[in-house]
């Protein structure tokens, strides 16, 4: 743990969980572990922070990358880009930056791919995937639906 009165300048890396309540000016790498930035903690990194799991109660100025998940708690402040498989964002957290979701390959598909290289197995025909449009498939101003629109006007082409 880095306590409230501590300031660290430089790169931090290791293989144990870390809680920061002080100030870290540098990059942090805890690839297999959890990093918690406490309510009074501040991290400012050039390349940013990499960990298995990152939980922010305090403030961060720099990019965050987590293999499992990033949590930004209420009243936390993060300016930087996020990259993870999962995000948990609480209301009233301040965030500014891009968010990239890491797509994890489904285990079944991965196993099928691995099996296919060893022995070809006939695959059942895949069921048709539900259209993502299903949620928005109704036409606008559909007479069957009560419409909130009283009028629509299109501006002139400029």
């Amino acid at each position: 743990m880095i306590g409230k009165t501590l300031t660290v300048h430089g790169h931090l890396s290791g293989r144990e969980d870390l809680v920061i309540d002080g100030r870290v000016e540098g990059d942090i790498e805890l690839i297999e572990n959890r990093l918690t930035i406490g309510a009074g903690g501040h991290v400012q990194g050039e390349k940013g922070v990499k960990a298995r799991e990152i939980v922010v109660f305090g403030s961060v100025n720099g990019d965050l990358e987590a293999t499992e998940r990033i949590e930004i708690k209420k009243n936390a402040k993060v300016v930087g880009n996020l990259r993870s498989a999962r995000f948990v964002i609480e209301d009233e957290a301040y965030f500014k930056g891009n968010i990239d979701t890491i797509r994890t390959e489904p285990k079944v598909a991965a196993a099928a791919a691995a099996g296919a290289s060893a022995k070809p197995v006939p695959q059942p025909a895949p069921a048709p995937a539900p259209s993502p449009l299903a949620a928005v498939a109704e036409p606008i101003n559909s007479p069957a639906q009560p419409s909130l629109i009283q009028g629509a006007r299109e501006g002139q082409r400029r």
Partner: peptide
Amino acid sequence: RFRTVKFFLTR
């Protein structure tokens, strides 16, 4: 400067 401006008026 934009091409079109489309309004949807609500109740």
